[in-house]
């Protein structure tokens, strides 16, 4: 929690700190700061801003993967093509179903787990360790591991249920099966953050409602949830962004199959760019994903802000 405890030093809104004392020191400092800012800005500019701007620019070109192909500006042509591309709409629909359901399920599952971990129960130690393991695992290994679980012959599920289902190749089961893996994979971060949020809820608040004779449910509804709200909004927003941009997990599990039923937008963009070589079109897809993410996040944050008032 070190990063939380340092608030006093971080008062960015110009506290009484550096204000009036020492004008000359301030001048020296700002020159030093300029020299220090350079190494700060250069990596951000070169490694983050630059490629992104270049990528956005590509969305308005017909760039191809070939070495000697001419690239020219095509304006909004890619976007027009995108809007009439049935595969694109299908991929986005799947992406939204995946992104929203994984985020919601992840949140509910993690909230339950965090509430349990916050109490003095047996098994707590084991559960705590298990709850962070998926965080450390390579996504590829997680994907391969679940393929073993879902495997139609040597897998666990069919043996357990006595079924003979090919989970990851079934048209209607593949997406739900992949969503379960998504929830499993993303629970650690969400649980850890929610648990830390729970531990920061002031004890006095609970004592106050206990005096009123409120039950566990009322305590949760009237104290815990409102107190957790900022943490919940932050982590679910992050989760949504992470989930909608997921690639490795689903690529390893299904490669987007069967018949495109799990082809998330990122898989679609990857295929367009690196299988078919349409760099410009894939960049357009990237921009479209960004717009959708921003729209969903904006709506969500706006509603949260309104309700909080």
């Amino acid at each position: 929690m070190t990063a939380l405890a340092e608030r006093p030093y971080g008062g960015s809104r110009g506290g009484p700190q550096g204000g009036s004392q020492g004008g000359s020191q301030g001048g020296r400092r700002s020159r030093g700061a300029l020299a220090l800012m350079l190494p700060a800005l250069v990596p951000v500019l070169v490694f983050s801003v630059g490629p992104l701007l270049y990528g956005i620019l590509l969305a308005f070109t017909d760039a191809r993967s070939g070495r000697n192909t001419e690239t020219s500006f095509v304006g909004l042509e890619n976007f027009a093509e995108l809007l009439s591309d049935g595969d694109f709409w299908e991929s986005f629909r799947i992406g939204l179903v995946w992104g929203l359901s994984v985020t919601v399920l992840q949140f509910l599952a993690s909230l339950g787990l965090a509430l349990l971990l916050n109490q003095d129960l047996r098994l707590r130690g084991v559960a705590r360790v298990l709850a962070v393991v998926p965080w450390a695992m390579p996504p590829v290994v997680i994907g391969l591991m679940w393929r073993l679980v879902y495997h139609p012959d040597a897998g666990l599920l069919n043996g357990l249920f006595g079924t003979r289902v090919d989970w990851l190749h079934d048209f209607s089961l593949a997406l739900p099966a992949v969503i379960v893996v998504g929830v499993w994979t993303g629970m650690p971060q969400t649980t850890v953050v929610l648990l830390a949020g729970l531990q920061n809820v002031p004890k006095e608040l609970y004592e106050a409602v206990s005096v009123d004779g409120a039950g566990a449910w009322r305590r949760f509804w009237n104290v815990t949830l409102p107190q957790l709200r900022p943490v919940i909004v932050a982590i679910t927003s992050l989760d949504f962004v992470w989930n909608i941009n997921q690639f490795s997990l689903v690529y390893v599990l299904t490669q987007g199959g069967p018949g495109g039923r799990t082809r998330l937008p990122m898989l679609f963009a990857y295929e367009e760019a690196f299988r078919y070589g349409f760099f410009g079109y894939a960049a357009t897809l990237g921009v479209a994903i960004t717009i959708v993410v921003l729209a969903v996040l904006g709506l969500y944050l706006w509603r949260q802000a309104r309700e909080a008032d």
Binding site: L52, A269, A273, L285, T290
Partner: peptide, 10 residues
Amino acid sequence: VFPVVLVIIP
């Protein structure tokens, strides 16, 4: 917020 395709292609 930006998807990695936008970075990986350039």
